[in-house]
Simulated assay, not measured.
Amino acid sequence: MNPKPLVEVKDISMRYHSPQGEVNALKNISLDIYKGEFISIVGPSGCGKSTLLNIMAGLITPSQGNVLIEGAKISGPTTAVGYMPQSDQLFPWRTIWQNAMLGLEIQGKKTLEAQEYVAQLLKNYGLYEFKNSYPSQLSGGMRQRAALIRTLAINPSILLLDEAFSALDYQTRLVVTDEVKQIITENKKTTVLVTHDISEAISMSDRIILLTNRPGSVKNIYTIELTCSTKTPLKCREAPEFSKHFNTIWKELDVNVK
């Protein structure tokens, strides 16, 4: 018997109204995401990747279709979803500890048990000794870890990452993807990443969803299987299957490549 999906995206379409008329952003997108999976969404610029993520987060109401998480329809922001945008969005006037506790404060869940959980996360991922520091005193990678810990603190069922590493320089980005993937794996979190970086998607994902040009629809779904000595994004880039996956997705992404 197949397991029931954790997330069900059912026939999602999105239309915007503009001065020039109606704009179709997404068209008839359906997909299932299973517990523990790491899914990446890639596609041409402007195809609606971030719009789809915002719909899954309950931040936007689609023109058509529904999103279900653990069988419950999403009709607005929900504690089942942890959302990380492009920048870390740490408040500069709050310490790392105070930033990490923000979601729990907003939800009125700043219990002793929750505080102990956050403290343990900070210890596990090398930030506890910096808990009284401010974001400006941390490196970009440390800030990104702090932002992820803030997201994990509310214990969501699913993490949504919207270009979460794009603000980092290339070398830092490679290191941080390794760190973030380790944290996600150890915490057994189902994750959806929107990215323009095909290599990043291949190195981190179990499956990749490729969207068409606008209006975005599902063009293909790739299962990523890599033989790596160590299952980290950096090591996975050395797998013999890596370039084959890259070439396949790149050619489908850019129709002008022959």
Score class of each variant (00 low, 15 high):
M14L: 15
D32G: 09
T190S: 07
D197N: 14
K109A: 08
K27G: 08
M142D: 12
M56W: 10
N187D: 02
K49H: 10
V194Y: 01
N28M: 01
G65H: 12
I12W: 10
K27W: 08
V42E: 04
G21K: 02
D254H: 15
L6Y: 08
V9P: 07
R237G: 03
N187V: 02
T111W: 05
T230M: 12
I106L: 14
I39V: 15
S63A: 07
K258M: 10
P19C: 12
I224K: 11
I184H: 03
W97N: 13
S18R: 13
M14N: 09
Q182Y: 07
K181G: 01
L127N: 04
N213C: 06
L59D: 09
A153F: 03
I74L: 14
E116P: 02
A80C: 03
N256C: 06
S136P: 03
I60D: 03
D11F: 03
A25S: 11
L161Y: 00
P233G: 04
K219G: 05
A80H: 12
N132C: 06
S229T: 12
G82L: 11
G21W: 08
K231T: 09
L127Q: 06
F165D: 00
K258N: 05
G103D: 05
L152M: 02
A72P: 01
Q182L: 12
L152C: 05
E241D: 06
P5C: 14
Q89G: 02
K188S: 13
G126H: 13
E8Q: 15
D178C: 00
N28A: 14
K109L: 06
F246D: 06
M204A: 07
G216H: 07
V118D: 10
K181N: 10
T95I: 12
N28Q: 13
R173S: 10
M84I: 12
T232I: 00
K73M: 08
S229Q: 15
I106M: 08
Y128R: 07
L152F: 09
N187H: 11
K231W: 09
K235D: 15
I198Q: 09
K10P: 01
M101A: 12
I12M: 05
Y16F: 15
A57F: 06
T151G: 00
S18F: 01
N24F: 11
M142Q: 14
V42Y: 00
G82D: 04
E252K: 11
P3V: 14
C236L: 06
E179N: 11
G36H: 03
R207K: 15
S133Q: 15
E22M: 13
P19E: 04
T212V: 01
R214Y: 01
A147I: 02
V176W: 00
N132I: 04
E113D: 08
T177M: 12
G141I: 06
H245C: 05
Q98Y: 05
L168P: 02
L112K: 14
D88A: 08
N247Q: 14
A167Y: 00
K4W: 06
L210S: 05
E113F: 03
S18N: 11
T227E: 14
Q120F: 11
A164L: 03
T177F: 01
V176L: 00
L193A: 00
T223M: 07
R214W: 01
E22S: 10
S45M: 10
T61M: 13
K258F: 09
E22I: 15
A119C: 13
S45V: 11
E179C: 05
E225L: 12
L112F: 05
V218G: 14
V9N: 08
G48T: 02
N24Y: 11
